[in-house]
Amino acid sequence: MPRVLRYALLSVAAIAIGLVALVYALTWHPAEREPATLACTGDVAQVQPGQALKVMTWNLQYLAGKRYVFYYDLANGSGPDERPTREDLAYNLDEVVRVVREEQPDILNLQELHEGAKATDYQDQLALLQERLADLYPCTSQAFYWKAAFVPDPHIFGSVGTKLTTLSRFRIANAERLQLPELQQLPLRQLFAPKRALLVSQLPIRGGGNLTVINTHLDAHTTGQDVQQRQLAMVRAQLDSLEIEGKIWLLGGDLNLLPPGQFDHLAASQQARYPRDTPLQALWEHYPMVPRIDEASGPEQASWYTHFPNDPRVDRPDRTLDYVFHSPHLTRIDARVRQQDTLGISDHLPLIARFLLPPAQ
């Protein structure tokens, strides 16, 4: 082989290796199971046997609000907006704090909080909330599910950082991040993609045992892929394991899935985002769900809608995507979706439920 050609090939190989190293350095590679970031301040009370417990789950859509149609909000990626204004971020932070202070849930599961993302001016949105809610929530756990120093997508062209957060009035003893199965994509694209997860927090119960609180945000439906089924199978395995061990648990989050019966209520333009036969059955056939099937699929289902898409063809909430599943050992007292004054804060609405813990044995 001529020396010039040999040098050229070596140069190309060196450049390729350098590019691979650069991409690896810019992207995030979490373990399948790892400790989650946990912080508690002061002498924090423990959960009491037999007490009532108020839980809220809310996808905050990174405090963007409802005045936008983002590029990903339309099926063909043609939404005109790429980021919210600073003014809207500040306004929606105020609105979230208002709602949380009025509701004062004991446990608050939040999804789509940003940290270090170019689209939201590199805010640490959990820190901004903590500054305003520190008197209510001395304990927090958090776990990223999208993180990269640079994403070359022209709509992003910068850093991303999206996390799950659980805020608690009660002590969190430990927390873990469990990696969920990933959407299958081309290897390079997959490196930059979100990595969905379960945030699992353990709240000690006075007298012994723990309340396990799980927070998640599952992938959306993708035609030709079974990622939702694989993620639900892992969730189901976690819940089954907790049940076998006799643990008390609850799971709250954005599952990106319709309950049975809602598909045909959607406008035709919205149906492509969901399978007609919902895989959510893998959970609701085995564990209590909020809302119940008769609520989410019955004549009053509109009161249980938790999603108001950023699509100009939709002028009101029209589907349920957010749920709380819970241990049969927890007794549901009441539940509702706060719709009346939250329609402009996020494309999701807060789901609230109250439970009674079992008494001490």
Rank of each mutant, 00 (worst) to 15 (best):
S346Y: 00
W284D: 13
Y274L: 11
H329W: 03
E300F: 03
R319C: 05
D318R: 13
D322F: 05
G298V: 02
V337C: 01
G298A: 10
A296G: 13
T320G: 09
A282M: 13
W304G: 10
R292Q: 14
V290I: 15
E285D: 12
Q301L: 06
P328I: 07
P291V: 06
L330K: 10
P275K: 13
L250D: 06
L266S: 12
L357G: 04
N256H: 05
F355T: 04
Q339N: 11
G252I: 00
L349D: 04
R332C: 04
G298I: 02
H348G: 02
D347W: 03
L255Y: 08
Y323N: 11
S269G: 07
L266V: 08
V314S: 10
D334E: 14
E285I: 00
R313Q: 15
A268C: 00
V314W: 01
P359Y: 09
D264T: 10
R273W: 13
S297E: 05
V337T: 04
P358T: 09
R273V: 00
L280P: 03
H348P: 08
L321W: 11
W249S: 10
T306N: 08
F325E: 03
D347I: 08
L283A: 09
R319Y: 01
D264Y: 09
Y305Q: 11
P350H: 03
D334V: 01
S327A: 13
D322M: 10
P291G: 12
V314N: 08
D277S: 12
S297F: 05
W304M: 10
W249D: 08
D254Q: 07
R336V: 00
Q262N: 12
F325R: 04
H348D: 06
L356N: 06
Q270M: 14
Y305H: 14
Y287D: 02
R276G: 07
H326Q: 07
I293L: 11
D294F: 04
P317Q: 08
I345Q: 03
A335K: 07
F355I: 04
D341H: 14
I352G: 08
A296Y: 03
R319G: 08
N310V: 00
L356T: 14
H326T: 07
S346P: 03
P260V: 02
I352S: 07
L330N: 10
T278E: 05
A302Y: 03
F263R: 09
L343D: 01
S269M: 05
L349F: 02
L280D: 05
D322H: 11
L255K: 11
Q301V: 00
R292D: 13
P288K: 12
A335Y: 02
A302F: 01
A272K: 13
A353V: 15
I345A: 01
L266T: 12
H329L: 13
H348I: 00
L258Y: 06
Q301P: 00
P359Q: 11
A302K: 15
F263Y: 15
R336I: 00
I293Q: 06
Q271P: 03
P359H: 05
G261N: 10
T331P: 02
D322T: 03
I352L: 15
I345H: 02
G246N: 07
R316H: 14
Y305M: 06
